[in-house]
Amino acid sequence: MTLTVTMTLNGESVSAEVEGRTLLVQLIRDHFRLTGTHVGCDTSQCGACVVHMNGQSVKSCTVLAAQADGAEVSTIESLAENGELHPMQQAFKDNHGLQCGFCTPGMVMSALDLVANNPDPGEAEIRDWLEGNLCRCTGYHNIVKSIAAGAQAMRS
């Protein structure tokens, strides 16, 4: 059985026929071909699939596509404008907050949710917030620096 999901994806109204079991991340990646959102695990641990739904970060591997019906969803592809990186993206670049790049979209989307609620997070708060985002390359050192720098850039 299929059902129709209609949502706003990165500012555009879209709809698709999905199975009941289809996950939001599958809809984003496989149907709409926005492949910046990644799948790194099957237990909702790694956070590579974090997107924003109605302004909050969610793990899109843990949301059914059907649950996103009527929602506003934004992905990593929505951040840069006219080739200009968002200040948080720029901070990741400036501080070498990424290596292989696979966890990066989830990290950036998660960081933006943190900063939306806490514009000036300290190191311990950033490390605590990243509980749901795994990186195997950076040892987090430069991700923490990047998020602090991105938050500062967004404040100014």
Binding site: R29, D30, R33, L34, T35, G36, T37, H38, V39, T75, I76, E77, L79, A80, L85, Q89, F92, K93, D94, H96, L98, G101, F102, T104, P105, V108
Partner: peptide, 21 residues
């Protein structure tokens, strides 16, 4: 030097094997 590859990774334009259809 900051990295050449970062722009594509940060904007979701990386091209990993599972991204290929």
């Amino acid at each position: 030097v900051t990295r050449k590859e970062d722009f594509r990774f940060l904007t979701g334009q990386g091209n990993y094997t599972d991204d290929i259809a």
